[in-house]
């Protein structure tokens, strides 16, 4: 009896220890980087160019924003369309299975493979060269599974009674989707977009091989550009400046934290909009 108690105490201690390791690892990384990064995080660093003695990251911020916008503009409509087809139209069978298999596989492919593909296909064969467009096209395929799956979940949450109500009024299937189903799932679509933004901002390998690493202000989407993550990689890899690297890393972490906050808000809204009717 006593032996069992000791054993249980040890087991419990191990579980607590593991949870502690997880949280401690996070706290260590986040605090260490933010603390070191804040020292260098001033308006001059954020809002100046990266040339002529200045080491600002404004061009990288802009490149990141452009790549994010372009990728979302490409991936969101396609992903939402695909999710609508899968949830509203597709009947169980080979086609559904094929699309499922493709999205699962796309979700599992490492980003460096996306980079390789983007390099050979968009950069070389389609002759988009190293450009924000090549990067965004590559990334939009990469985030497609995220958009599809998240939107699918949101669509499945829309009560059948909404669809019935609309159809019974003589609306067609597509009118029902456009008028009732999709609007009800908007917070879910928003979640999908925010999650994708997080992945795009954090991506390095795929962008590095497709969008290039020029530190100029990008003038058009055919220009090459360097995103923040790539910038951090170059700074650290080439040992250019650890101070700047810290500051860039801090910005990335803060961005991710904000994105997580936004995701939780959007997801919360989705939940609320369907529960409030049961009162």
């Amino acid at each position: 009896m006593k032996k069992r108690k000791i054993k249980e105490t040890i087991q419990k201690a191990v579980i607590w220890l593991c949870a502690f390791i997880t949280v401690a690892a996070l706290a260590w990384i986040v605090i260490y980087i933010i603390a070191n990064g804040l020292a260098h995080l001033n308006p001059d660093f954020i809002f100046s160019e990266y040339k002529g003695g200045k080491n600002g990251i404004l061009p990288m911020i802009l490149s990141t924003v452009y790549v994010v916008l372009l990728s979302v503009i490409i991936a969101a409509p396609i992903g939402v369309g695909a999710a609508l087809y899968l949830v509203e139209y597709a009947k169980p069978g080979k086609l559904l299975y094929l699309v499922r298999f493709a999205t699962e596989t796309l979700a599992g492919i490492p980003s460096i493979i996306y980079g390789l593909f983007g390099f050979i296909f968009f950069v070389t064969i389609l002759k988009f060269s190293f450009s924000l467009l090549s990067g965004a096209l590559t990334l939009s395929i990469m985030v497609l599974p995220t958009v599809i799956r998240t939107t699918e979940e949101a669509l499945k949450c829309v009560p059948v009674s909404y669809r019935e109500g609309s159809l019974a009024l003589g609306a067609t299937k597509f009118q029902t989707i456009r008028g009732v189903v999709l609007p009800s799932a908007i917070p879910g679509v928003l979640t999908a977009v925010i999650l994708s933004i997080g992945r795009i901002v954090g991506e390095t390998a795929a962008v590095y091989l497709t969008a290039g690493m020029v530190t100029r202000f990008p003038g058009s989407m055919m220009d090459s550009g360097r995103t923040l993550s790539v910038h951090l990689y170059v700074l650290a890899k080439e040992g250019i400046s650890f101070e700047e690297a810290f500051a860039t890393a801090a910005i990335l972490i803060i961005t991710v934290a904000l994105i997580n906050l936004a995701t939780n808000k959007a997801a919360g809204r989705l939940k609320r909009s369907f529960t409030s009717q049961d009162n």
């Binding site: 009560p159 109500g165 019974a168 003589g170 009732v180 009800s184």
Partner: peptide
């Protein structure tokens, strides 16, 4: 057909939009 034969369901199922938009939907 469904325009001419309307239906009211067991559980009230207003759409998650304004009162006005619900009525104007059809």
């Amino acid at each position: 057909l469904r325009k001419r034969i309307g239906m009211v369901f067991q559980k009230p199922n207003p759409f998650p939009m304004s009162i006005y938009d619900n009525v104007a939907y059809g």
